[in-house]
């Protein structure tokens, strides 16, 4: 097995699905010859041709509308929104059109669109590139939101997303694209949507998180292990729909929970996770629910990112607080 970055795993997943299903189409700004600004679609136009992998004019709403139109014509579109901060231009297509079509049309049509888009802080982008806007989509009925935290998951989740007959927003954290490699099998494999992953088992405190915060949470768990605290880390993988069973089982086992997200406290899906825990498992809790999130400001100017983004230390402090409660 080869060691791969997340971006390489994503390219591999795209190539597999282009090969498996000739109805799949990849399009977006600069995804053709250039292979996308992060090279996620590198080499795909050469291999599959301009009919299957092609550039679009620079207009996100146009890209979204085109995806819907192509889905109505029986294709399986995989559009790229160059950065998820640009999603506001295509919100109508995503949440008002694609997400509602199955419902509107009485379950007579599939809308198998997978919208890929990079997001996430820590890489000093200009404004409106890095924002964690998954909450905006996750609160809109009819669409799934997937956020992988590592190369292995990215490949299996992306293949599942493309094969899913409902629209999926697949968000790729920029900091994870090339920051580390791990074993990723050559062959195709899937990871089911809507299923969380217990990254690390523990008995004292549950940390429920997703995206780049999975790594920070694992780091915190390692530090706490040395202090004799057993921390369970759950990677949601899919933030809409939530894997209630895995969340509930963990919380009921440990009785203490910290929800961690990179999004601002008022954004993301953390509040929803907390609401579900509160309704379902509150009597299992022996301490208040902890919530680690970014402060409720606009995404920070590049030089201030480090002071703004949550990190392993913040998570470890919260775990200690709950343990001692």
């Amino acid at each position: 097995m080869a060691q791969k970055t997340m971006i390489e795993a994503i390219t591999e997943a795209l190539a597999i699905e282009l090969r498996n299903d000739d109805r799949t189409l990849i399009f977006g700004e600069d995804v053709g010859k250039n292979g996308g600004v992060f090279r996620a679609t590198q080499g795909l136009q050469d291999e599959f041709g301009e009919d299957r992998v092609f550039n679009t004019p620079l207009a996100e709403s146009g890209i979204g509308g085109m995806a819907i139109g192509l889905a109505l014509e029986g294709f399986r579109p995989i559009p790229e929104i160059q950065f998820f901060g640009f999603v506001f231009e295509v919100m109508d297509s995503i949440v008002a059109q694609a997400a509602r079509t199955r419902y509107r049309m009485g379950n007579t049509r599939n809308i198998p669109i997978t919208i890929r888009s990079p997001f996430g802080g820590g890489v000093h982008t200009p404004e409106l590139h890095a924002d964690s806007l998954e909450g905006l989509i996750a609160q809109s009925p009819g669409i799934k939101v997937v956020i992988p935290s590592n190369p292995y998951d990215a490949k299996g989740l992306l293949i599942s997303a493309i094969r899913d007959n409902d629209p999926v927003v697949f968000l790729e954290h920029m900091k994870l694209y090339r920051s580390f490699r791990e074993e990723v099998p050559e062959e195709e494999y899937t990871i089911p949507l809507g299923k969380a992953n217990v990254v690390r088992e523990g008995t004292d405190v549950s940390v429920i998180t997703y995206g780049a915060m999975v790594q920070e949470s694992v780091k915190a768990a390692e530090v706490l292990a040395e202090e004799g605290v057993s921390v369970e880390v759950i990677d949601l993988r899919t933030v809409q729909p939530l894997d209630i069973e895995t969340i509930t089982a963990s919380v009921e086992k440990t009785g203490r929970v910290v929800v961690v997200q990179e999004a601002q406290r008022q954004a993301g899906v953390g509040s929803k996770v907390i609401a579900e825990i509160s309704e379902r498992s509150v009597l299992s809790l022996v301490a208040p629910i902890g919530f680690i999130a970014s402060p409720d400001t606009v995404f920070p100017f590049g030089q201030a990112e480090k002071d703004w983004l949550p990190n392993a230390e913040d998570i470890a402090d919260k775990i200690r607080e709950l343990k001692e409660f």
Binding site: D51, S61, G64, G65, G69, L70, L72, G74, F75, S93
Partner: peptide, 19 residues
Amino acid sequence: IIGAQYVQAAGVAVGIKKN
């Protein structure tokens, strides 16, 4: 949504051409 059908029609038309 006024105008949304225009971007969708473009997509349908590209699909018809591909089909």
